[in-house]
Each structure stands twice: as C-alpha cells, then as structure tokens.
C-alpha cells in the first residue's frame, strides 16, 4: 500500500479537493482527510489498472508497477485495502464538519467511483479496445467516467465539506468535468509525443494496444485546439468566485493543459 501511495505522483486530486474547500469558504483541515482519501482511491485504481488482466503496465510513476514487485495477488489486495481505508479515513478523521455533510460527501465519492462512474469508464474502455468504429462520443464517455469522475468527486467533496451552496457545488462539478476531459486529451497527446523516460510510464502504449485516442480521431493539431477550448470552458466556471481564492484552481487547469509529463 505504501509502495504505490507514496511513489510520488502529481497529487492533482488532493490539491483540487483542498482548493475547492477553501474556495467556498472552508478551512483546509475540514477537507484534509478527504484529500488523502481521493489520492488513495486514485492510487488503487492505478494499481488495478496496471494489472495484466487490465492494461498490463510494467511502469508507473517511474517505478515498476505494484504487481511487478509484490505479485498480482498482493496488488489486488493492497488496492482493495486502500479503497476501504479511504472511506474509513473520511468517516473517522474528518473534524469540524457536521455528520450530515460528511455522509453526503461519502455518498458523492462512492457514486463517482462506482458502476455509474469510474468503473463504467473502465468497462467501456476495455470493451472498446481493438474496435475500429469508436467515435468521439464514446471516447468522451470513457474519459468523462474514467478520468473526470474522480476529479469531479475530489472537487465536489471539497466543496461540500467546505460548506458550499448547491449552486457553487454544481459550478465546481462542471469545472472538474472540463479539466478531467482536458487531462485525458493532454495525456493522449503526450503519449504519442514523449518518451517513456520523460513520462515516467510506458509511452506509445495506446498505439500498441490499438486504443482510440484524440490524436488518432482528430489529429494532433485539432486535439491541441480542443484542449485549449476545454481549458477556457473550465476557467469560465470559476468566474463568479473570489478571484484570489480561485487562483489555485486556475493555476491547476493551466498546469494540466501545459504539463510535459
């Protein structure tokens, strides 16, 4: 569990969670357990994603993947245990927030990773590997669920725990969806333009697995334009908030758009 959780990583989700909490007027400690929890869930999803029965990856965050070091059985169990601990940690360690809000937050998190969220994206993704007729719409479904769902969960969790209004929560939800899709479009571009060493994970694997990607469907140039538009749409959602408090989220959107690995 430690090996994968503490292997580094960009920690985008925890940062999003904390920033969203502060944006709506909450204090950082309110969302800290949830911020840790979303990183645990993200890590466990990567561990299971890397398994031979899924994407079969050898390299993650610049290190051998969990099952390469500890075996497949342990990788599955450690992932399960991390997922369980994430929920336990939010339920037990969150302070300064009413139980009603914590329960609501846990419900949101569970929904974002369940069969209508992350898992839905995974299943459609696996089922569409090797298919030639996957269109933009289906690709978007995969990414909105596979990548954006947990980002959305992270932001919404922070906003709920920080005491955001329904309207604020929904705006942040949309923001997260845009940057989630943005994240994946950029990921697809990097996969074909960078080396394994620069990325810290196996490069060019989308081509090898014959996966449908944005560069494949619309070309590199068009993909870059699409990324620009998503970044702008995302930042528009933040226009109604205190600009100073929104700055970290805007910086994060830009980071996702212009990152090199």
């Amino acid at each position: 569990m430690r090996y994968s959780l503490l292997a580094g990583g960009k920690r985008v989700r925890p940062v999003l969670c904390l920033a969203a909490c502060e944006l709506v007027g909450g204090q950082e400690p309110m969302a800290m357990p949830s911020a840790c929890a979303v990183e645990m869930i993200h890590t466990m999803s990567l561990m299971h994603d890397d398994l031979p029965c899924m994407d079969n990856d050898d390299l993650r965050r610049g290190k051998p993947t969990n099952h390469k070091v500890f075996g497949e059985d342990v990788a599955v169990l450690a992932g399960d245990a991390l997922l369980a601990f994430a929920f336990e940690y939010i339920a037990v360690a969150t302070v300064g927030v009413t139980p009603a809000r914590i329960v609501r937050a846990i419900g949101e998190l569970a929904k974002s990773i369940g069969s209508e969220g992350l898992v839905a994206g995974q299943v459609v993704d696996i089922n569409s590997e090797g298919l030639s007729d996957v269109g933009l719409e289906q690709l978007e479904f995969i990414h909105v669920h596979k990548t954006a769902a947990l980002l959305e969960g992270s932001v919404v969790l922070g906003a709920i725990l920080g005491g955001g209004s329904t309207e604020e929560v929904e705006k942040l939800r949309n923001f997260a969806r845009y940057i989630g899709l943005l994240f994946q479009v950029v990921d697809d571009i990097l996969d074909v333009t960078k080396s394994s060493q620069e990325l810290g994970k196996t490069a060019g694997k989308d081509l090898v697995a014959d996966k449908v990607t944005y560069p494949k469907l619309m070309g590199i140039e068009k993909s870059r334009e699409f990324a620009e538009k998503l970044n702008k749409d995302a930042q528009d959602q933040l226009s109604g908030f205190d600009p100073e408090k929104a700055a970290p989220l805007i910086a994060l959107a830009n980071y996702i758009a212009y990152r090199q690995n």
Partner: peptide, 23 residues
Amino acid sequence: PAMPSSLSAFATLSPKHQSDLVP
C-alpha cells in the same frame, strides 16, 4: 477484471435513504 467488483461494493454505501431513520 478485478476492479469493478471492489469499487462497486462501496458505491452502495451511499446512505441517502437511511438518514431519516438513522442519525
């Protein structure tokens, strides 16, 4: 694949219809 099963189990913890019966 392993993941769908484990993740979905937790999705059901979503306790919205309980809150009027249980604190």
